[in-house]
Design a protein around this nucleic acid. Structure first.
Lengths: 159, 159
DNA sequence: TACATTTGCGTAACTAGTTACATAAAAACA
DNA sequence: TGTTTTTATGTAACTAGTTACGCAAATGTA
């Protein structure tokens, strides 16, 4: 007993389930960071690793490579800067751009962080079996190719 | 070129991808509803279908069967009530409870809505191949059984 | 070179969920 | 029966994203 109603309903609740999954992952992310004494917030690792490779990046470069909206990126960068993980400077060649790079603090903490992220990834692997990742990837590509809206419009016009 | 950086990074961005997927599904949901002239908001269908079966339900009954937090449910119910889809009444046997049921309007619109939802589900089926749903279900169950936090704690204690 | 367009950034307001807290009614219990 | 605990609801504040809009700098063009 105590079945999951939404699971039993097929596709009618799939969006809600995906949200539920995200909420759960975010929440465990916070808990795990706390347990491991990692003083960072969600998605910071993406930016730290990106800047480790690319050294200096502007807001829109980051937002387009992560596929986040630029206001989302700005919010994250601001917080990271407040906590001294990042340094921001005006691009001398283009006064509109702000270039972000890792601070000394970030660089010195990174090795320890990377070890902990590796551990987390190891544990995640037990949950995200390859079938899920493959199916997710397939779905993402399909949605990219032909948005659901298009198919619906096709149907409407046919009618 | 123009590859998806996050996809290429394995598990480190999986939470962000799940969120991205949800954002996309929500957005196409709104678009599709508009295109089909369905004047309802996300998740209303879950409640309409639930109340069609169960006639009268209290807030916490709904929230526990949908596995939404009760404040989330209250917000949805309020909006639905404002748009005359629902009727709310005090439970005479328990003055704390408010029982919600479908309005005449909702009942008369439901057949048309259900047809449109069926169409949407038909189109969704082309995207959410069974592998995705199975993998999602497996992941949900696994997270339910042993939360990731537990595994992390195990590791910490072992060390 | 002057003007129009595009690009990059920033802020504001919105969205769909959450947790935390408050209160009143009901239920359990001494 | 009087008191404590639990349950149901409601509200407030937070979260992590989005779109919409405005402005200034850079770029393209007549």
């Amino acid at each position: 007993m105590e079945k999951d109603y939404i699971k039993s309903q097929g596709l009618i609740g799939v969006t809600a389930r995906v949200r539920r999954l995200n909420d759960r992952l975010m929440s465990t992310g916070r808990n795990v960071y706390k347990a491991l004494n990692l003083d960072i917030e969600p998605n910071w690792h993406l930016i730290l690793l990106l800047l480790e490779q690319n050294k200096k990046m502007a807001v829109t470069e980051i937002s387009s490579t992560l596929k986040f909206s630029h206001p989302a990126v700005i919010k994250i960068l601001k917080k990271m800067q407040e906590k001294d993980f990042l340094i921001g400077e005006k691009d001398p060649k283009d006064q509109r751009k702000q270039l972000f790079s890792l601070s000394e603090k970030a660089i010195s903490l990174l090795p320890e962080y990377k070890e902990k992220w590796k551990l987390i990834e190891e544990i995640q692997k037990e949950y995200f079996v390859s079938e899920f990742l493959k199916a997710l990837e397939k779905l993402e590509s399909k949605l990219e190719e032909t948005p659901i809206e298009e198919k619906v419009n096709e149907f409407i016009n046919k009618k």
